[in-house]
Amino acid sequence: MKFNATQRSVQGTSASRRLRNAGRVPAIVYGGTESPLSIELDHNEIFHALRKEAFHASILDMQLDGKSQQVLLRAVQWHPYKQQVLHVDFQRVLAKQALTTKVPLHFVNGDSSPAVKVGKAIISHVLTELEITCLPADLPQAIEVDLSSLEAGATLHLADIQLPKGVTFVGQGEAANPALATALVKGGGASAADDAEEGGEAASGDEPAAE
Rank of each mutant, 00 (worst) to 15 (best):
D146R: 00
R74E: 04
D160G: 08
V71P: 04
S112T: 15
K102R: 07
G23H: 06
R8M: 04
D65E: 10
H125A: 08
T100F: 05
G187D: 02
S191D: 04
L73A: 00
A179K: 02
F3C: 01
L41G: 02
V103R: 06
L41P: 03
S112I: 13
A49S: 15
T6M: 14
G200Y: 15
D146C: 05
Q77F: 01
H43E: 10
Y81G: 10
K52S: 10
I123F: 01
E201H: 14
N21I: 15
K67Y: 06
V108N: 05
A75H: 11
G199P: 13
D138H: 09
Q77R: 00
H87G: 02
E129F: 12
S113F: 05
P140R: 01
S113A: 06
T133D: 04
I161L: 04
R24K: 06
A183N: 05
D65P: 14
A193R: 12
A209M: 12
D89S: 07
S204L: 10
H48R: 11
P36Q: 12
E131F: 05
L41N: 05
E40M: 14
P104K: 02
V10W: 11
T100N: 07
G199V: 12
A5G: 09
S148W: 11
Y30S: 06
A203Y: 15
L130H: 02
G188F: 08
K96W: 09
S204A: 12
R18E: 12
P178Y: 05
A203M: 13
V76N: 02
I46K: 00
G119S: 07
D195P: 11
L72W: 06
K102G: 13
V116E: 02
R24S: 10
Q141I: 14
L163K: 09
H106I: 11
S68D: 15
V170Q: 10
T100M: 12
A181G: 07
V71A: 02
P208A: 09
E198F: 06
V29D: 03
A209G: 07
F169E: 04
P104M: 00
A75Q: 12
R92G: 02
E40K: 01
T133H: 09
A15M: 02
D42Q: 06
V85K: 01
Y81P: 09
Q162G: 13
L147H: 01
P178I: 13
N177R: 12
A121C: 00
G189L: 08
D89C: 15
S16P: 09
E53I: 13
L41R: 09
D61T: 12
L127F: 03
N44V: 09
T101C: 04
S38I: 09
L156R: 06
A22K: 12
S148T: 15
S112W: 07
G32A: 07
E129I: 05
V126E: 07
H157Y: 14
A202T: 09
R74F: 06
L19G: 04
D146E: 00
F90I: 08
S68I: 07
L150I: 06
L163G: 04
T182W: 03
V85G: 00
D42F: 07
T13H: 04
A183E: 03
K117M: 13
R74K: 15
V185P: 01
L184E: 08
Q83P: 06
H125Y: 08
P208Y: 01
S58Y: 02
K82I: 11
Q63G: 13
V71Y: 08
H56W: 10
G110W: 04
A175L: 14
F169C: 10
V88R: 00
